[in-house]
Design a protein around this nucleic acid. Structure first.
Lengths: 347, 347
DNA sequence: TCCAAAAGTGGGATCGGTTCCATTTTTGAA
DNA sequence: TTCAAAAATGGAACCGATCCCACTTTTGGA
């Protein structure tokens, strides 16, 4: 493989000139530039990225830490980030902490990124304990956090207004005439799950239809967690005409389970999700949900990280608002109270 | 940041000894080892990965090229690969070519990996044109290919027996009594889509129920492609009691569309998918499908790439067999021929 | 006790770029 | 035409590891 020196010799210039030509920093005369270009072509020269990184003290690597890669949510994030980084010639390295059992494990995943000398790190965190990781990472790299807000990291937190999201869901259901509403939350130790939930409850109460505890099930934002929570809700004696699910995965699981029991959606029970991930148009029925601008948020976070790290000036925005996305899984509560096939009151 | 020299000085040994101690190659006395360990601790030393890469001529980076990141299929792959690499202390860098418009674009995505000096490259390719990329990449790195088989790359191709998969689908439907069967394929220029399709047709014919052309729609393995193809099938005058979909995304779209038209699955029409991605248990009804061992295949490909690249001896397997996974979207064809709501014969 | 083989060691050369700096060349306003 | 400022240049020093090699120390069987 050819090196700068080979190129310099063939072009009849110094190695510094070649380096300047390639990186575009500093000035090179038209004549030298042409000679260098020809030499590069002729030798089929490609700069060695490790040597470049070593001497320039930048790896052009951005580390991305995610708590899980199950389901479409984080996938949409990764997809967006990969694309934004590629446009800037940077590379993403990924640490998926879903197999971590303890906080030490999660830290080890972070070290896996830090030890690689990332120029910047992007953490998607919704647990307080995970957020501690941000403090740690900050010592080593430029840092940006998604799904979490704190004043300590002002200007480097990117989040969606889950309070508003929870309220939009409540308003939508109440507008449709639902008064007996159940909810399956995410794990309430997670900030985003809690925010959605608290706002939802608050708004329901404000609208005159407080959600009674029997209609609240704490679940988790995973398929397995959703299954458990759905089973718990359906096994309970609670009656309701609509269910607000903490995310779309759980809503999907719920719809599947209701279908299995021949409970019609939205005829018997309305279901609303949260996030508006990839698959929401294709559940049966198509899922009404709170649209969270995941991709926009991811892109913004990525842009700002690039700005901080490489002095770019890419556009970004820290705060995003969700919106209501009505499809077919919610309908008006016009039917009479009726007995469910399994003996519970569900309509 | 401390360097090997600092550590060596503090420990009172030579830099070579420190290097040997850290990498675990070569021998270091117990006494020196302890001194070095103490010095590392004290200085909070972390080896610089760029310097290490430059001098050892290995980046510990594995490039992964995928044609798309829409839907769960490639995500399951990425997730598996990230995990397998992390276990070996390697890092994945990703190039998603779904925004590529031309072959030059796809090549540019590959160069994005190659220019980063990956030690190895993993290509998931099902188009012949994409496979040409493998030839190119092979010049620069160790290479392994998924979803494609060719004798030229013997021992480095990992694939699932789509011929068998197509046949399993056909047998399942025929066993349930379906004789008028429709199919929505993937883009037939893709090898995997074509193999599934051809085998399916062949097996249906062998079983005495050849699929007539009116019941065949060429689609694509994307949500949008699925929507178009589903619309085309439902708009046609074809009648059928079951549909074989080339992958699960298309099957999901079909179920959603049938639900919209109040056509019952599997009451009126049975639907079977292909791949058995993450969401298949949670469609309504749960999707019967051909289980493709995506994760096992991805892990094997990854293992073999690691073996080739770093001289490891991780277990792997080149060929995988799919299996039938029966859930609730397929049922026996016991009902009488009946008129569909929209005037077509569908049962 | 002796001595060949094995284990352990220090440090310089090297990987292939970038960056700095002293020097030369070019530019364009007076 | 003149000359200060700006542009362009070559090459050495450096980034921080690995690896090789010549040399010293330890080991253990006879």
């Amino acid at each position: 493989m050819a090196t700068v020196k080979d190129v310099a010799k063939l072009a009849g210039v110094g190695s510094g000139t070649v380096s300047r030509y390639i990186s575009g920093t500093g000035s090179v005369s038209r004549k030298s530039g042409e000679k260098i270009a020809r030499a590069i072509e002729q030798l089929n020269y490609r700069p060695n990225s490790m040597a470049r990184s070593l001497s320039s003290r930048r790896s052009d690597l951005i580390g991305v830490w995610v708590p899980s890669l199950e389901g479409p949510y984080y996938h949409m994030m990764i997809r967006t980030i990969e694309s934004a980084l590629r446009l800037q010639g940077k590379h993403m390295i990924l640490a998926n902490a879903e197999d971590a059992q303890s906080n030490e494990d999660r830290l080890a995943h972070l070290d896996y990124l830090i030890n690689r000398d990332c120029d910047g790190i992007l953490i998607s965190s919704s647990l307080q304990s995970e957020f501690e990781l941000a403090r740690y990472a900050e010592k080593f790299s430029n840092l940006v956090v998604m799904n979490h807000h704190t004043d300590e990291l002002a200007g480097r937190c990117f989040s969606i207004d889950h309070d508003l999201g929870g309220r939009l869901a409540a308003r939508h259901l109440v507008e449709l005439g639902h008064t007996r509403v159940a909810t399956i939350t995410g794990r309430l130790s997670a900030l985003d799950a809690r925010q959605r939930h608290v706002a939802f409850l608050d708004e329901m109460a404000k609208l005159g239809h407080p959600v009674v505890p029997e209609r609240i099930v704490e679940g988790a934002f995973s398929y397995a967690g959703g299954e458990q929570a759905v089973a718990a809700l359906l096994a309970s004696s609670a009656d309701y005409s609509a269910v607000f699910c903490g995310n779309d995965k759980v809503a999907m699981v719920l719809i599947a389970e209701l279908h299995k029991r021949s409970i019609s959606v939205p005829g018997d029970v309305s279901v609303i999700g949260y996030d508006d991930v990839e698959f929401t148009p294709y559940t049966a029925p198509a899922l009404s949900t709170i649209h969270a601008p995941i991709e926009e948020m991811s892109q913004s976070a990525c842009h700002q990280l690039l700005n901080l790290t490489y002095g770019l000036e890419l556009p970004y925005q820290e705060h995003f608002e969700p919106s209501l996305s009505v499809r077919q899984s919610t309908g008006s509560c016009s039917l009479q109270l009726a007995q469910c096939p399994d003996g519970r009151m569900a309509v």
